[in-house]
Nucleic acid binder design. Sequence first.
DNA 1: ACATGCCTTGACAACGTTGTCAGGTCTTCC
DNA 2: GGAAGACCTGACAACGTTGTCAAGGCATGT
Lengths: 371, 371
Amino acid sequence: MGGVKDFGMDVTSRNDTVMELEGDLEPQIAAPRAIPARPTMKDVAARAGVSLKTVSRVVNHEVGVSPELVTKVELAAAELDYRPDLTASNLRRSDRRTSTIGLMIEDVSNEFSSAVHAGVEDVARLHQVAVLSASVHEDPQRESDLVRALSSRRVDGLVLTPTAGDHAYLERERANGLPMVFVDRLPHGIDADCVLTDNAEGTRLAIEYLIALGHKHIAFIGGLSILDTATQRHESFIATMQRHQLPIDPEWVFRNVKGTDDAEKVASSFLSESKQPTAIFAAQNMITMGVVRALKLAELQHKIALVGFDDFALADLLDPPVAVVAQDPRRMGQLAAELLFERIRDGKISEELHTVPSRLVIRQSGEIRPA
Amino acid sequence: MGGVKDFGMDVTSRNDTVMELEGDLEPQIAAPRAIPARPTMKDVAARAGVSLKTVSRVVNHEVGVSPELVTKVELAAAELDYRPDLTASNLRRSDRRTSTIGLMIEDVSNEFSSAVHAGVEDVARLHQVAVLSASVHEDPQRESDLVRALSSRRVDGLVLTPTAGDHAYLERERANGLPMVFVDRLPHGIDADCVLTDNAEGTRLAIEYLIALGHKHIAFIGGLSILDTATQRHESFIATMQRHQLPIDPEWVFRNVKGTDDAEKVASSFLSESKQPTAIFAAQNMITMGVVRALKLAELQHKIALVGFDDFALADLLDPPVAVVAQDPRRMGQLAAELLFERIRDGKISEELHTVPSRLVIRQSGEIRPA
DNA sequence: ACATGCCTTGACAACGTTGTCAGGTCTTCC
DNA sequence: GGAAGACCTGACAACGTTGTCAAGGCATGT
């Protein structure tokens, strides 16, 4: 809160009597000529010679206004460059909609998140709704601050990727009229609508593909296990290997790997040993990139197979091109937004779980067979 | 505008007398229990046993409220999960700030645009300001629609990448109190604050580097010449070649190339000829990727030098790693936002031109010498 | 004891808009 | 010709909040 109050200089409203109190002071050179008055409905009404309410009707395309008045009002509005004030409108309207939703993602400049963003925007645009977007950066404190900020701006709903923390606090927010849909990760402490990738299935696809090629020694490098997505991929890896009665070598199973550099280090460590896996499964975007680097450094990129989870730009241009389990983040965003608009429309709270399928994209790095 | 009026069912305000008119109809099963009432200041005031204004003072951290009352009010607010309504606050406040700005970029899911977005967010966050973001997709109609939409939501200012069209219409918007800063491209028909990459200088750096390596026959593949950025890069290419008295072979100069596929086609066309350039300058992101593809296809990636304009993820992992002129889109976003907040703060309109330097990132593809 | 001034609190209007309702004009029908 | 209805228009209140101002309590100085 604590608004913006330092700017002061409090310009009195445009056409009221001007305060004449400080006439004794020298002329205020370059006074903060702040905030030119915007034309309001009142101004349009005056210019068109009609009442306020008639302008309102014309602006909102209500039926039952005579054509002449419509023309007059539209002309006056155009001449003044009138823009209806959605904030005032929202205040008065009975549905209290702001035609704005909030989107909280990991990082707006991240390839995955911004694809989700694009998907949400696709749908929001159809509904003529604007999107307030923000990066959470995996920070629970920032997450709850953002929820407050967006709630204060009275967004009609929220699409968000939850952090690892507890989300019981959102229950009250939702009860107070803020519909929300989670995307990419399941929240803890609240039952809510959620759109997820099928992590287990995607992982199974990748691993079984490698197994079919004859691989028996597959390394697993996964992300932060506080995140469900990472855990699901790990569990599916284990389950799939077991189902095929293959040994899981603990020295080739890494969890809690964070970011490209860490992944490169981890991969390099076991690639320099004499005993090596014949294939590597990198359970996340950044990790895949790190492994690519490590393989290249060790000049093993054509000897050891690699499949990553989540596609990325240029994966097909690398040497060798990198096989991946491709998610469909844009679709996830679209689906989440569609769900949200349903919830907003009929005001009911529900707890549907939607899964967006992932598919295996076979590229050379995956086709390498064990020696 | 034509707001959202189809949802109907007009729930009367929460604690007023409930309308008893249609008691004869069957019970409305699962009636759209729309919009639960949110607590307002009035509710908080009642619960804390103080006046409305006192709650306002506490919420806004104004001085001069007795500590006991502050505690009482804060307690009541917390119990009700009260969230101040920024839209109502903005309406009444004399500064009329919404603490929200608009951002219009090419595409939220584009690597360059979303880095600009991240930069804007960095600065907005410091100011506790939310960002309404939208993709323009190089569509002038969409651009002006978005400006209207954001203006109606009374954003405090606008950061935007202009399309190729005319922008005189924004003059009136700005005169009506909407500060704006352009980023990445210079607008036409309006003098305004603008943050640009130094396209000419970046291009010069790249070309002179190639020349220094001994290249004399350099191909140029550039983007849509309706965009100034593309034109500037082209002109700088020509000027630099001429300054070094090198021939410009028209059959190796391509403009108006759009997207990866188009670039690949164009590059492939001249790579299949017997006479070839010894180096290629790709004047844009997508174009560079297309050229990489074409070179790889022709197996010339280690024979012909390549430098691209604008860096991209994994450029360093390609074979060979691709040399580029790197812009700093995040810095551009930050700078634009900083400028915008200055304009918002002191309400003055100005027309500063800011240039963010680009730098040459040398990677193997640039180090290839002519045969 | 009284005037003065500071400090805290609340009543009230207003921001720009829309929902409600009443009033006016014009048809239509007996 | 008059009543009834359809149609169009405007006056007014209200949405949730803050700016303004006045009133009351208390301490201080004479």
